[in-house]
Amino acid sequence: MQEGLGWMDMTVHKGKRWSTASAYLRPVLSRPNLTAEVRCLTTRVLFEGKRAVGVEYTQNGQKKKVFADKEVILSGGAINSPQLLMLSGVGNANDLKPLGIPVVQHLPGVGSNLQDHLELYVQQQCSQPITLYKAQKPHHMIKIGLEWLSMFTGYGATAHLESGGFIRGRPGVTHPDIQFHFLPSQVIDHGRVPSKMEAYQLHVGPMRSTSVGWMKLKSANPLDHPIIQPNYLSTEVDVSEFRQCVKLSREIFAQRAFQPYRGPELQPGPGVQTDAEIDAFVRRKADSAYHPSCTCKMGAPSDPAAVVDPDARVLGLEGIRVVDASIMPSVVSGNLNAPTIMMAEKAADVIRGRPALVDPGVPVYRPATLETQR
């Protein structure tokens, strides 16, 4: 059951961030059928006709090629995977031809359908010295760092976004569409600016924004960053949902439980009250939650925006799959890390020919008071 407030799941193990490299790759690096290369930049997929046969990459200034006996699997993420496909001639032919890239497969969906999560911070001054403000002083940071380096415990062993929740922002919504993260600190510019005082905040944002963007190649040079147009807040629905996010966050901080700790509101601040003022604040302060996805959408061949089929195979081609957050048809209602890992495990089973893991008896939570209760 996703709906509700509580402890947030984190990929932390024994006080350390437990990445997929730590959990899946490093324990099996000694396998004879696995070779991992580092400091590489993949520049294109190699094709013979419609079949992917390998990849070209640069390493230490040298151009190299590696060939596949069975398949090429792209896992570059929602930006690099479509970029690599387009560099290899897979994408919208009308965009590739002007760049001098030979078209292998016309797939206009490559790089389109870009979706992301936006969030902003609603901040409240804390009237008691119980936040992480002192922990960010230099002498405390040294102590925290030494404890973490020696024992992997203490303040350095957590991301501190330990509580949060998922709610339905309005009647009739069937599953949560707003996410909260609570942090006992004031964050300014993603932490690049030190906090100014004892404070706490909510990270809040809608999870199913209707604004859809795109990305395209700037040139045929793999070193050139692609052009990214996320089209954030381009629909009135998204603007109104963020307005609701601010109002709901204020409602939470106004509860009696916060009374012993509640100081003045720092952000948006008492001068932001009307809908127009809140909308202006949202446009000024909303930030990416770093959840780009959906740029190689999974779908049926009849869908002009689809890039991969239900088995993650690139449509119209052979010997190539995409396995990362780019294959989501629409952005998930939550953070991307765990769902992407789940998709990779599912794709691994498909690639290996294992039967699907199906349990039709798993109950799915449905709110009993859809129209009347958050």
Score class of each variant (00 low, 15 high):
Ser163Arg: 14
His225Pro: 01
Phe182Gly: 06
Lys216Asp: 11
Val246Pro: 09
Ala254Tyr: 13
Ser249Val: 13
Asp238Phe: 13
Val239Ala: 12
Arg170Gly: 08
Leu183Thr: 09
Lys218Ala: 12
Leu183Trp: 13
Lys218Leu: 04
Thr235Gln: 00
Gln244Glu: 04
Arg208Leu: 04
Asp224Trp: 01
Met207Gly: 05
Phe242Tyr: 10
Arg208Thr: 13
Ala199Lys: 00
Val193Arg: 10
Gly191Met: 04
Arg256Pro: 03
Asn231His: 08
Gly164Ala: 07
Asp177Gln: 13
Asp189Gln: 12
Ser249Leu: 02
Ser219Trp: 10
Phe182Pro: 15
Phe166His: 15
Pro171Ser: 15
Ala254Pro: 06
Val246Ala: 06
Gln244Gly: 06
Ala254Phe: 10
His225Ser: 08
Met197Val: 13
Gln244Arg: 11
Gly213Pro: 02
Leu183His: 13
Val239Ser: 06
Glu251His: 09
Leu217Cys: 06
Phe180Ser: 08
Asp177Ile: 00
Gln244Ser: 12
Arg170Met: 09
Met207Ala: 02
Leu233Met: 15
His175Asn: 01
Leu217Pro: 07
His225Leu: 10
Glu162Lys: 14
Ser195Gln: 07
Asp189Leu: 10
Asn231Asp: 05
Lys218Asn: 04
Gly169Phe: 02
Pro184Met: 12
Phe182Asp: 10
Val173Gly: 00
Arg256Trp: 06
Met207Arg: 08
Val237Thr: 14
Ser249Ile: 12
Thr174Ser: 07
Phe182Ile: 15
Thr235Asp: 06
Gly164His: 11
Val173Met: 08
Gln244Cys: 07
Asp189Pro: 00
Gly191Pro: 03
Ser209Lys: 01
Asn221Tyr: 00
Arg256His: 11
Gly213Phe: 02
Arg192Met: 12
Ser240Met: 04
Val246Ser: 08
Leu183Asn: 11
His203Gln: 09
Leu217His: 07
Glu241Leu: 14
Leu202Pro: 06
Phe242Arg: 08
Arg192Leu: 14
Arg168Ser: 12
Asp224Asn: 15
Gly165Asn: 14
Leu161Met: 15
Ala254Cys: 09
Leu161Gln: 11
Gly172Pro: 04
Leu183Pro: 02
Asn221Ile: 05
Ile228Asp: 13
Asp224Glu: 12
Pro206Glu: 14
Val187Pro: 03
Glu162Leu: 15
His225Cys: 03
Pro222Ser: 01
Ile188Pro: 03
Arg170Leu: 12
Val246Arg: 04
Gly213Asp: 14
Val212Phe: 01
Arg243Thr: 08
Ile167Lys: 07
Thr174Asp: 13
Gly169Arg: 14
Phe166Glu: 08
Phe253Gly: 03
Gln255Trp: 11
Gln201Phe: 06
Leu223Asn: 13
Gly165Ala: 10
Phe253Arg: 09
